[in-house]
Simulated scan of single mutants.
Amino acid sequence: MRLNPVFLLSATDAAHFPAEPKTHGRPEVAFLGRSNVGKSSLINALLGSKEARVSSTPGRTRAINFFALHEVAGGKQKAVPSIIFADLPGYGYAKISKSISAEWPKFIEPYLGERETLALCICLIDTNIPPQTSDQQLITYLKQVQRPFVVVGTKADRISKNVLMKNLAALKREHEIEEILPVSSKTGAGIPALWERIQSAAE
């Protein structure tokens, strides 16, 4: 099965979120993480396309970008999407974090806290760096609002397996979580396992 991503819209206000006619009420999967954690690269690896814009400048995404994923069978694209991806603004980058943090209550918190069609949050954390307070705050928030989430460790190909295991153990301990799914957008490691989680949540 192939999924064809179609860009829907960018939302900077709760009033801009795509309505039922655009999404057909399909389940949504939100991608969250610190600026430069590799969020766009992961989305592109999942989609097998360049739909999400990858920037070398952290914090370029200032809106929630929505993509509808349509099943393609026999060369024809189904009209109703199977699932919706929501790419959220990055956080934690010193130069712009204050401006983005100020915007969060206006449209990020309503999306995470109140969006009925939100089925899963994918929290990206960098396996190459020590645990970050901002990641901890996000995980705590998702627990408080009782959103299903999976924590994904990005850039897992950049360090040796021994160092990766050590870093994952430290991250799990610090963030008080039982599991982190290591992935690499470059090698594709962990991508099939993440797709399984996404499809399971969507069902």
Rank of each mutant, 00 (worst) to 15 (best):
G90V: 03
D13K: 12
V6F: 14
V145G: 02
R60P: 00
P18R: 02
S49G: 08
E20Q: 14
R147Y: 06
E28A: 09
L142I: 00
M1W: 13
Y91I: 05
L112D: 08
E179Y: 13
G59K: 05
Y141E: 06
K166P: 04
P110T: 12
K143Q: 13
N4I: 15
S49R: 15
R34S: 08
E71A: 15
R34Y: 11
E179P: 00
A119C: 11
I180N: 05
S97T: 15
L142E: 03
K161V: 12
A15G: 05
G25S: 11
P105I: 11
F31K: 04
D126L: 00
P58Y: 05
V151P: 01
S184T: 05
I84G: 08
Y111D: 10
K155A: 00
K143Y: 11
L142C: 02
Q136F: 13
Q136P: 03
P89I: 00
Y111C: 12
L32D: 05
I84C: 10
R147Q: 13
V183P: 11
L124S: 09
R62P: 08
L142Y: 03
K161I: 10
R60G: 04
I83T: 11
A63W: 05
G59M: 04
P81S: 04
L164P: 07
P148I: 02
L118E: 04
I83M: 12
M165I: 12
S10Q: 03
A156C: 07
L120W: 10
